[in-house]
Design a protein around this nucleic acid. Structure first.
Lengths: 171, 171
DNA sequence: TATTGTTATACTCTATAACTATA
DNA sequence: TATAGTTATAGAGTATAACAATA
C-alpha cells in the first residue's frame, strides 16, 4: 500500500493540472482533426505514423503494441480496421513464423499525407505558437526524461499478459 | 489541398511526441490507481475533485461540463453513476429552475480521501521525482500558458452542425 | 426562442480469458 | 514451457438527436 500522503507543492499541482488539461484539450482537438481529415482515430494515426516512420515501413505486432496500444487484442482490432481499409497489410514474419509483420501501404501513406498538414497546423495553432523555441526545447527535454523514466518502471500492476520484469518499484 | 507539410522542427516533434506519450502513460497509470483505490474512472475523479475543491461543494451541471470538456449527455451519465453510489446529490438550483446543482456528499469526500494519497504518490513516483523544482516550475508556467491559449480559442469545433472544417490556414 | 438537462440509441474502443500455432 | 497473435465476449464511455421544462 501507499504510505502517508506526501502532498504536492503548488507548482507541482499547477504543472499536473495543466498537463492533464492541455493533453486532454489537445487530444480532443487532434482527434477531431484526424477524424475529419482522414477518418482516423488517434490510435490508428499513431500506428500509421509509426509505420511510416520506420525505414522498412513495417513493424511486428508486438513492437507496435509496446509502443502504442496497451493490450494485444486492442492492437489486433485496430490493425484489422486499418487492414480492411487497405492502409496496412499483415503477413507472417519471415524469420519468426509466430510473428506478424504489419506494413503500411501506399494508400496508408496517402492518408497520412492527407492528415499531416492539418495535424501540424493544429499543433502550431494551439501549442507551438504560444511557446518560445527555448520553451519547446526545455519541454522536450523534461518530458523525454519523464517518459524514459515511466517506460523504465511500469506502474505497480501492469500485467496485460505475463510479465517477467523484476519487481516494479514496490516500497 | 496543402502541398508539403508545414513541418515541425526536431525539438517541436520531440516535445509533441513526449507530451503525448507522457500524458498517455500517466493517464493510464492514474486510471488504474483510481480504479483500484476507489473504483473511480478518471472523469469521475475529476468531477469529484472539482466538487470537493469548490467552497460550496457543489456546481451546476453546465459548469462541470465546461470544466471537464465533454458532452452534456456524457456528464449526465457520469453524474448518474456518482449519484447511484451516493457520492453526489443532484437537486434543482434554487435560483434557476432549469439548472441542476450537483453536490458532493460525505461519502464522496471519503472516497476522495481514499484515493488521494495513492494518487499523489503515483504522481511523485512517475513524474515529479524525475524533475528538479526548476523543471516543475517551468513546466507549470509553459503548460499553463498553453492551456489558457487553448481555452481562449476553441479549436474550430464551436459549430457542431454544418459541414466538416477543411484545410486550416496553415499557409 | 434560447438555455438546461435528460433520454434513447448506436457505436467505438478496450480489456480479459480462452484458444491456436510456433520457438 | 514461453511467446506471438487471434477470437469471443462483455463492459465502459461517448456522442448525437430528439425531447421536456424553464427563462
Amino acid at each position: 500500500m501507499v504510505m502517508a500522503s506526501p502532498s504536492l507543492e503548488p507548482a507541482q499541482l499547477g504543472a499536473y493540472f495543466a498537463l492533464i488539461e492541455v493533453s486532454s484539450l489537445l487530444r480532443h482537438a487532434v482527434e477531431q482533426q484526424l477524424r475529419d481529415a482522414g477518418d482516423l482515430s488517434y490510435v490508428q494515426f499513431q500506428l500509421l505514423a509509426r509505420l511510416g516512420d520506420s525505414p522498412t515501413g513495417s513493424h511486428r505486432m508486438t513492437d507496435l503494441a509496446d509502443g502504442v496500444v496497451y493490450s494485444r487484442s486492442g492492437l489486433t482490432y485496430q490493425a484489422q480496421m486499418l487492414e480492411q481499409r487497405g492502409l496496412v497489410t499483415r503477413a507472417p514474419s519471415p524469420d519468426d513464423e509466430r510473428s506478424i509483420t504489419v506494413a503500411i501501404t501506399d494508400d496508408g501513406r496517402a492518408v497520412l499525407a492527407d492528415v499531416f498538414p492539418g495535424h501540424i497546423a493544429l499543433l502550431h495553432e494551439s501549442f507551438f505558437d504560444t511557446l518560445t523555441p527555448d520553451d519547446v526545447e526545455h519541454l522536450a527535454g523534461v518530458l523525454t526524461r519523464v517518459r524514459d523514466r515511466m517506460r523504465a518502471s511500469p506502474p505497480r500492476s501492469a500485467a496485460p499478459r505475463r510479465r517477467k520484469d523484476a519487481a516494479p518499484r514496490s516500497a
